[in-house]
């Protein structure tokens, strides 16, 4: 860019004075901290998880009880006391929260985005957008309390067989808290659709409904999809609401069976909290299983973030 070259030209003479070097180094170190953070997360999770598995533990110089990696990835029972570490019981619970919150957040979020970008007046937007931001701003521990104290009893009047701890109310609050994420990213994508396309639609005699659903939504589909993935990755990593509302007993449920949402289960994040609120002594098998779950969680959310980025970049319509 020409402005960058201009700046480089203008500042070349003074670039190596001690003051410039010092400030430059400070700013560089600040930016470098983010890389250090990522590296520490990856190294920490990988080494601690490696100490957990039988195959890799000897490489890390760990003696003592370990767990089989095959049992970890394929087992369906999670029982710390009987040393059964089947992460699938936790992963399916997380999947249930994800599906449940997606059912709530995706239609509502997209509808919100269409309304805000196509229908709402400037005045309505200036009220609705901050109101939606509040949904994402309420602490998740508060949402968990709401689910447990108000939503579950309310659901109990309709569905009497619902448990005190259940996946349904947890999914509902997680869904509500990720609506703003779906809505704001999708709305950004819809606002980026140029007005010429809309006017062309109207020129062809289309109604506002036709333009919104037939022109704007298809044109911003990549942004909408990337918002889904980002929001669901947030739902997967969501901790306190599911810890409080979904219960503490791990069980392997069928995520596609609606009846299983009435029972409580233990998603990955809730299992991590439970491991720490229980009696955990540093360095034991339970301590290391924490990092193994953490690694699974980190990999899933990272992959989803990368996919979301990829979708947004690869399929973006250029105008």
């Amino acid at each position: 860019m020409s402005t960058d070259e201009l700046e480089a030209d203008l500042t070349r003479q003074t670039e190596n004075s001690p003051r410039e070097l010092l400030t430059r180094t400070f700013f560089f170190l600040c930016a470098g901290l983010s890389i250090v953070t990522t590296i520490s997360i990856v190294v920490l999770l990988v080494t601690e998880a490696a100490k957990f598995f039988t195959i890799t533990a000897p490489l890390m110089g760990v003696t003592g009880p370990t767990a089989s990696i095959v049992d970890f990835l394929t087992g369906t029972t999670w029982q710390i006391n009987s040393q059964e570490f089947g992460v699938l019981a936790l992963v399916t619970s997380t999947l249930m929260i994800t599906i449940g919150s997606a059912v709530i957040a995706i239609p509502l979020g997209v509808a919100t985005a269409i309304y805000l970008s196509e229908y709402a007046s400037t005045q309505a937007r200036s009220v609705l957008k901050p109101a939606l931001e509040i949904l994402a701003g309420v602490p998740t521990v508060v949402y968990g309390f709401f689910a447990l104290i108000y939503i579950t009893p309310a659901l109990g009047t309709v569905i009497p067989q619902i448990g005190t701890f259940n996946m349904l109310s947890a999914s509902i609050v997680v869904g509500i808290m990720i609506i703003p994420m779906v809505a704001s990213i999708s709305e950004d994508a819809m606002s980026a659709v140029p007005d010429e396309l809309r006017q062309a639609g109207y020129g062809m005699g289309a109604t506002k409904f036709d333009v919104a659903t037939g022109v704007v939504v298809p044109a911003s589909l990549s942004g909408i999809f990337s918002s889904f993935i980002l929001a669901l990755s947030r739902a997967i990593g969501e901790t306190m609401a599911v810890t409080i509302a979904a219960g503490s007993r791990a069980q392997f449920l069928n995520p596609l069976n609606p009846a299983s949402y009435l029972e409580g289960a233990l998603p990955m994040t809730a299992a991590m909290v439970q491991l720490l609120t229980g009696d955990i002594t540093g360095g034991g098998l339970a301590y290391r299983s924490l990092f193994a779950i953490g690694l699974v969680l980190f990999v899933i959310t990272l992959v989803m973030n990368i996919i979301s980025d990829f979708v947004a970049q690869r399929y973006r319509e250029e105008y």
């Binding site: 983010s34 520490s40 947030r234 990593g237 953490g294 959310t301």
Partner: peptide, 16 residues
């Protein structure tokens, strides 16, 4: 890296 860090679950930061 920074935009990915923004998406890392808070519980993983706790582990860190």
């Amino acid at each position: 890296n920074i935009s990915n860090l923004a998406g890392v679950p808070s519980v993983v930061y706790g582990l860190l």
